[in-house]
Amino acid sequence: MMKSHVIGTLVAMAAAGLLAAGCQKKPESQPASQPAARQPVAGEPAPAAAGGLVPVEISLPAPLFEGTPKPVDDPQIEKPLGKRRPPFLAPPGTVNLALGRAVTSSDSAPVIGDLEQITDGKKEGTDGGFVELGGGKQWVQIDLGSPCTIYAVAVWHYHKQARAYRRVVVQIAADQDMLSNIRTIYNSDRDNTLGLGVGKDKDYVDTHEGRLMDAGGATGQFVRLYSNGNTANDANHYIEVEVYGKRAP
């Protein structure tokens, strides 16, 4: 039986304070049409409500540490934050739009796991909790069902052991072929291996907190996440993807 671990929650912190504009990242090439979400500075208290924004509650799985990971020592990989991620602020009514939504992939026959696990709301990192795609460049795509305003994408690749996924690119588009109104919200592909353009974002070590990427209020119906192996092997893994936003009126 899969045990239900204690759910950690990113909750609002009481003190008021200004948000750091330097931590915000807007999608490329298109201004947000809705109030932008904001990511406060790590370690600084976030207001319960600032400019109409409220903290997004994200449930977290139990942290894991199994076996002996391959050493992760690469200047491309950002240093660990060393503390909990600060709350992410977004307009009231923001929800996980990806929950239960259809998932497609470049690898329609995963090594292990089923694609629907990626949006089933379960983030446990233990065996059985992840989907493994084949080696090299792979992607998964989530159809949100209708156009949405997206404030953040959160992804849990694999957190049973410390490892970093290579060339992570996350895009939002209006169509399933990713041709219309494409917005790139994260790109760590520094040598353009994926052919989607050179990115400047850092690689990072996955943890039970997952990675939250600021989408800045981009509009779109489809979210596609790319990767190209990881520091332990050339496979690509996904436990869960959450897309925080609101349905377009």
Binding site: M1, M2, K3, F65, E124, D127, G128
Partner: peptide, 15 residues
């Protein structure tokens, strides 16, 4: 040295 870690679990469908 390793940190305190929880017990390994399993998915219900793979009992």
């Amino acid at each position: 040295n390793r940190p305190v870690s929880p017990a390994s679990t399993w998915p219900e469908k793979f009992v």
